[in-house]
Simulated scan of single mutants.
Amino acid sequence: MNVENGIHDAPYFVPQPSKWPIMGSLALFFITAGTAFGINNVSIGWYALGLGFLVLIGMLFGWFGDVIRESNHGDYGPQVDYSFRWGMSWFIFSEVMFFSAFFGALFYTRVVSVPELGWFSNTHDYLWPMFHQAWPALSGPKVAPYTPMEAVGIPAINTGLLLTSGITVTIAHWGFVKNNRRQMTLGLAATVLLGVIFLCLQVKEYHHAYTEMHLTLASGAYGMTFFMLTGFHGMHVLVGAIMLSVMLARVIKGDFTPAHHFGFEAAAWYWHFVDVVWLGLFIFVYCL
């Protein structure tokens, strides 16, 4: 098939059958089964969990490699690029819905459940004595006393780190448009570094919450929503940092041109989404 200006003259590229989807399914099977067996003290569970992660890592390297080789070979024409953009847009939309569910749970708990429980407590004997209509509820018959997390300190520092990372990834994008390799490299490296620092500080925050503030997943609705929202966001920061690290390695290798760099654009879209979600978390979980 003829290639002109690095783009196939075919309207759409159809790849060869791939082994990577089945390997990904096997990895998820071993990870799920290993976790289930492990938490039930079945010794083989942890081996299965480790095997699952090894298969998953191998699948990611192999699948990334195939896609990169196809892109560099010029297999992806305008229609494929169009499909990639819509695919990433719908993926980010699904992530918006994912976090909307957790924010919705937080909203329902604070705005609906707590006032209703306060009304029941004042009119009936359905709840434990001395229940106070307040968020967060700092104690209860099955909830050990704890201290809620404040916005100052690590949360405020992490907010500054992510806002700064949004600037550095935009600087990197300008480098792609201008074909400035040095700007691409420095912008991406700074963004990845800021993401890693964010994750390290979040680990420190969790350790402080568990050991000194006695704030755990078992700390009532507040503890559950706090760790679910911040924990899943931290996982997304990790995924975004991995994506940007792959883009950094490709830039150092010499990939991408000003006209063809959607791999980076997709990672940048994802990173901006992570930034916006954190702003919502900082306001509704830490500040209010």
Score class of each variant (00 low, 15 high):
T191P: 00
S113F: 09
P155A: 06
F176L: 09
Y126R: 15
V55D: 04
P11A: 08
F30H: 05
P21N: 14
N2S: 15
F102N: 10
P141V: 04
H124P: 07
F131I: 02
H233Y: 01
F262W: 07
W278H: 06
A151Y: 06
R110V: 03
F84L: 09
I31R: 07
A249N: 13
I57A: 13
G38L: 05
I22P: 09
P136F: 02
L60Y: 08
F103K: 08
H236K: 05
Y286R: 02
F53W: 11
E150I: 12
T147H: 08
D255A: 00
S139E: 14
M184L: 09
S245G: 10
W63R: 02
Y82V: 15
P145R: 04
V67G: 00
K204G: 12
L194K: 02
F93V: 13
T191M: 02
P17A: 10
V274G: 01
W174S: 11
G87K: 15
I68T: 15
V96E: 11
F64W: 14
G140V: 01
L54M: 12
G118S: 10
L60F: 11
G240T: 06
F131E: 02
G153K: 08
A156D: 08
V152G: 11
L49K: 11
L51M: 12
G58R: 09
F64E: 01
S100F: 05
M228C: 14
E95F: 08
V237F: 00
F264D: 00
G220M: 05
G240M: 06
A33Q: 12
L117F: 14
I167K: 04
F30P: 02
L127N: 05
L186R: 14
Y222D: 00
F232K: 06
I44Y: 13
G166C: 14
L186F: 10
L26H: 03
Y108F: 11
L56C: 03
G231C: 10
L199H: 06
G118T: 11
F30A: 12
Y12M: 13
G187P: 02
Y210M: 13
G231H: 15
V177Q: 07
E95A: 14
Q79Y: 15
E150W: 03
I44V: 13
F13C: 02
N122E: 15
F37T: 09
P11Q: 13
H272V: 05
A48T: 08
G187M: 04
Y82M: 14
R85G: 11
K253S: 14
F61T: 08
V169A: 01
V277A: 00
V274D: 03
P78L: 12
W135R: 04
F273M: 11
S43E: 15
K178E: 09
F64A: 09
E212Y: 09
L162R: 00
Q79I: 15
E4H: 13
L244E: 03
H236R: 10
F226A: 02
L288G: 13
G34N: 07
L229Y: 02
G231R: 12
A221E: 12
C200I: 15
D81P: 01
I252Y: 10
R250F: 01
L244P: 00
K178M: 04
M23C: 12
I157D: 01
Y126G: 08
F61D: 15
G118Q: 01
Y146S: 00
A137I: 10
W278I: 05
H207D: 12
W20T: 03
A36E: 10
L56V: 03
I57D: 06
W46M: 11
L194C: 00
W174P: 07
L217N: 15
I31F: 10
L51C: 09
A156S: 09
M1Y: 08
T170V: 11
I31M: 13
